[in-house]
Amino acid sequence: MEKTARKKRLAVVLAVLFAAGLLAVVLFDAFAPKTTPQTATSFAMGSVLSVEVYGGGEGVCAAAVDAVSALDRRISRTVGNSYISLLNENGKCTADGDFADDMKALLSLCEKTGGAFDITVGALSDLWDVGAEAPRVPEKDRIAAALALTGYEKIETLGFRFSVPEGVRLDLGAAGKGMACDAVKRVLSADGSVTGAVVAAGGSILCLGRNPEKKPWAIGVRDPDGGANDLTGVIRTEECFVSTSGNYEKYFELDGARYCHILSPFDGFPVNNGLKSVTVRCSGGMESDALSTACFVLGEEKSLPILTAFGADAIFIYSDNTVSVTAGLAKDFTLTNEAYRLRGEQQ
């Protein structure tokens, strides 16, 4: 009888201890101070640059912003004396090693995407000027003339020296924000004590290291028909770069037709192929940005071998509100917007 009572007392003590332990864990999780990131918000490349860093030394965010500003000064079309401005105005420039490396990587991307991503679309961009106050569709002969000035093969390279024929205009707008993410990654990795970071250069994203909340990073994919903060779905992912190209950010409408800012280097017209957007996830910033543009230009079928070659994955959002996701992203992407459905699923 006494033995039973002792057992019961022991059970009560154990239960109370267990409950107290559980409570302690819950209270700690709820009330312990959260890891606060170092943050910086700035402007570069005509977009907002947002940097959130966990861990890292003092001033690491400022160093990241400085790196993007320095990159902008080298590659911007609108900054006088940038290498791109020099090439566009004088037809030639002698660059530093970083720019030469970037140019080689960019030209390789142009080649590997079969010219769907092309850094010489500047003459076409100038002609269409989609962001202008009163944009219009240019005459066909002017489009043909601008198209004749387009083609990455026209860029001549000799070591650190670059030259282009007269009239050829370089525009790195389709890769610049991804390159900004690469630049930030270099700074944060060199710091040595950064445990995690989320960087957004415009709509190009870098997720670095570990999320302090011990879960995957959550990257929203913008709803092309919604506001700036409306989503089609969410990618839950480990360290990676994510970029999106779409027809909804910069465009004009005329006689019921939409003319977006992404121009096809093949026909000189804004891309109009039934896609609203393409989001690419891969291991490089420049690559993710350039590939999202190339895939938007090419369409899904022609994009797949290129994505495979780069070890990249993509989400294609179509005008009929269907969504196609490549195999590598299927388990990481969640559709959250009821207006859309995954291709292959029953309506």
């Binding site: 994203i205 959550a218 929203g220």
Partner: peptide
């Protein structure tokens, strides 16, 4: 807010 559901939006 303190809650952090989405870390960033790609657009």
């Amino acid at each position: 807010t303190e809650k952090n559901d989405i870390d960033a939006i790609a657009y």
